[in-house]
Simulated assay, not measured.
Amino acid sequence: MKDETIIRLAGGWKGSEIVGRTLLEESVLCFLEDLSREIRSNPMTRNREDCAAFAFWCRRKHLESWKEALNDRESRLGWGMIFHIAPSNIPTLFAYSMVFGMLAGNGNVIRISSRVMEDSLPLCQMIEQVMQQKRYQDIYENTLLFTCERGDGCIETYTNLCDGRIIWGGDKAIEELRKIPVRPGVTELEFADRYSIAVIDTEWMKQRSEEELQQLSYQFYNDTFAMDQNACSSPRLIVWKGEDRKCFETWWEQCMETAKRYELSPWKVSRKYEEVCLNIMETDQIEKVRFYDNRIYVADLQECPRNPEQYDGRFGCFYQCIIQNLEELMPSLNRKIQTIEYAGVSPKELQDRIVEFGAKGGDRIVPLGQALSLDYMWDGINLIEHLSRVICTVERRGD
């Protein structure tokens, strides 16, 4: 199949039908291990934090650890060809999506946004280089990474051919892509705008040593600044369990020191300032805004908000509120709330409160520092199982 309107970035799929394979196939695990090694050794990618993080994540040892958690793995097959539409805010997310499709026994056609093509290109080149090895010819022929204009006709063409579709993007982008429906019976996943928070216990925080605070602030930096807070799992609202203003100040001062490594352009500063000013004008819940050397803005909220997602923050803009117990948090966990990071509170207690309350949000509960750790469970969905089907057999029963 020829399509002159696309720019091919990696892979050699030419439009032929792709059959489903078994889960976590040996050839796929070998390919990903080789890819991980190449990324870590190649000068184009080894010094890029986002590429290095992907390389560490797709190591064979890490991916094999999922085997026991995948139900009916031996009786599952991939659907065939999965069409992935990657987001425009995270340059490497296309690669993670590709891995999930591969592990689930599928061929993968992936559209990368032209807005992040330049940042995505080094990783695409590594994928192409490893795929070109003779032993990975089958993977090469069942994979295509490309970019095209947003309204290009190839998106409809590939949608009509696919056995499954994954859309990563904002609400508006998903609404637009829904106008190109998949065929009846085709599996589909949509990952729209989500919002994440962190819950920190002040008594626990006060007992941390200076060295521990430095490490925690570094982990928090990786969860937030490393992605300009663009990732849906990057916390924007900090919920303090227990009231201790001195503890808050100590924490943010330490975070400011850690954030000095952040590349803070004038454009980012102006956008950050504009967003917090707009929120001040649009709500009466902001009591005070604290500025930490222009690196970090922190807005104090009067109470834990019912709709936290209205308080958007990027480039080091955070909102904070106080609760006395975890029950006070539950009304805030609407469907938009994805990840809850915790420090000093019990994750089991958080889980129990969510279940008891019947909250619609709070799909992930992870330690501080692991907000960006993508897992096969995402937004409450087992991605590998969803991208495959069970071959079910029923024994003949006697009359």
Rank of each mutant, 00 (worst) to 15 (best):
A95H: 04
V199Q: 03
E190M: 15
I238G: 00
S209I: 01
C58V: 15
F191R: 15
Q129V: 04
A231G: 06
I166W: 08
L368P: 02
N294D: 12
T92Y: 09
F56S: 12
Q132T: 10
Y292S: 03
E309F: 05
C277Y: 08
E188F: 07
G151V: 01
C162K: 00
P43Y: 07
R236C: 00
C255Y: 11
R165F: 07
L144V: 07
N47E: 11
W13D: 06
G101F: 13
C51I: 01
S41I: 03
L70S: 05
I82S: 11
S16K: 15
S388M: 09
L63S: 10
F291Q: 12
R37A: 11
G80P: 03
C148G: 01
V19L: 13
V298N: 01
A104Y: 06
D375V: 00
S41M: 08
T159W: 06
T5Q: 05
R194N: 08
A359M: 02
K272Q: 09
D152A: 12
F146C: 00
R314I: 08
E38W: 01
Y262V: 11
M102N: 13
L77T: 09
V355D: 14
F248E: 14
K14T: 15
L103G: 07
R396Y: 04
K61F: 05
Y218I: 13
V99P: 05
Y319D: 02
L103H: 09
R37I: 12
E203G: 10
P184N: 05
Q285H: 12
I323Y: 03
L216A: 12
E282Y: 10
Q137H: 14
R295A: 04
C162P: 00
N325T: 14
A259V: 08
E68F: 08
F291V: 14
F100M: 15
V199K: 00
R178W: 08
A10M: 06
K2I: 14
E274G: 12
A104W: 05
Y319C: 00
Y221K: 00
D119N: 14
L264D: 09
Q370F: 08
S41F: 06
L103I: 12
T202G: 08
M131F: 09
E211V: 11
E149A: 12
E303Y: 11
C148L: 01
A343G: 04
T147D: 02
W240L: 03
E118G: 09
T5W: 00
A343F: 02
